[in-house]
C-alpha cells in the first residue's frame, strides 16, 4: 500500500463515528467525518476520499440523495449503513450507485472486512482480468468459456454462464435483482425477479456442494445476490 487510504464517514451519531474512526485508524486508514449530507458532499469534493461510509438516516436530507448527487461526478466506492428493516432504502441506494451495505448493528470485524474488500476492488478496477478463476471446487476458464467442477466439465446454458460471469465480475459486491436482471436479461426483464431466482438456483445446484446452504452464491434477502469466492 503506497499511501494510507482516506475514508469519509458521513454519520450523524458521534458515538458511532468515534468507534468506527477508532477501528479504521487501527487498520491504517485516515478518517474524515461529516455529520450531514451537505457537509459530506463538500468533503467528498475537497478531500477526494478513497471510500465513503454513508448512514442512510441523516438529519438534513435523504442518504439516497447523497448517492445520486455523488454519482453525477464521481465513481468512488460508497458503503451504506442502514437498519435491517429498511430493505427498500438499501435497494434504492444500491440501484442509485452505492456499492455495498452494512446492517446496523454491525461488528467491527465485518466492517473492516468490507472496507478492505471494497478498497481492493476499487484499486483493481472492475472486470475480470485473469483468464481463469477458481473458487471452491470450481474452475472457470473465461477464454474457452468452460466451467469445471472437480475437473469434470459442467454444462451451463448461455444465460447461466452470463449470470455467472456478471456475478464473478462483481465478486464481493452485492448486486440488486434489478441490476442483475438488466445485465443478464436486458432492461425489459427488470421486474421478472423470479427468472433470476430460478437461474441462481440452477447455478447453485450445478456448482455448490449444498445448494440449500450456499457458500459462494449468497442471497441478500429482499435485496439481491453476492458472489463470494470464499476461502
Amino acid at each position: 500500500m503506497s499511501q494510507a487510504p482516506t475514508i469519509l464517514l458521513v454519520e450523524d451519531d458521534p458515538l458511532i463515528r468515534r468507534f468506527v474512526r477508532a477501528a479504521l485508524e487501527g487498520d491504517g486508514c485516515r478518517v474524515a467525518e461529516a455529520g450531514t449530507v451537505q457537509q459530506g458532499l463538500i468533503d467528498a469534493g475537497t478531500r477526494k476520499p478513497d471510500l465513503i461510509m454513508l448512514d442512510l438516516g441523516l438529519p438534513d436530507a435523504d442518504g439516497l440523495r447523497f448517492v445520486r448527487d455523488l454519482r453525477t461526478w464521481s465513481s468512488m466506492p460508497v458503503l451504506v449503513l442502514s437498519a435491517r428493516t429498511a430493505e427498500e432504502d438499501k435497494i434504492d441506494a444500491l440501484d442509485a450507485g452505492a456499492d455495498d451495505y452494512l446492517t446496523k448493528p454491525f461488528s467491527v470485524g465485518e466492517l473492516l472486512a468490507r472496507v478492505r474488500a471494497m478498497l481492493r476492488r476499487s484499486r483493481q478496477g472492475s472486470g475480470i482480468e485473469s483468464p481463469d478463476l477458481r473458487f471452491g471446487r470450481v474452475h472457470v476458464d473465461f477464454v474457452r468459456r468452460q466451467v469445471q467442477r472437480d475437473d469434470t466439465p459442467v454444462h451451463l446454458t448461455p444465460i447461466e454462464y452470463r449470470l455467472l460471469c456478471v456475478l464473478l465480475a462483481h465478486a464481493g459486491k452485492v448486486m440488486t435483482h434489478r441490476q442483475l436482471l438488466k445485465e443478464v436479461w436486458g432492461p425489459a426483464y427488470a421486474d421478472s425477479a423470479h427468472y433470476l431466482r430460478i437461474y441462481v438456483g440452477h447455478l447453485r445446484h450445478k456448482l455448490e456442494d449444498d445448494p440449500a446452504q450456499p457458500r459462494h452464491f449468497i442471497t441478500e434477502v429482499g435485496v439481491g445476490y453476492r458472489f463470494i469466492s470464499g476461502a
Partner: peptide, 16 residues
C-alpha cells in the same frame, strides 16, 4: 438501533 450500534461497536473496539 443507533445507541445499540454504538454500544456493540464500542464494546468490540475495547477488545481490539
Amino acid at each position: 438501533r443507533t445507541p445499540l450500534t454504538a454500544l456493540v461497536g464500542m464494546a468490540e473496539t475495547l477488545s481490539l
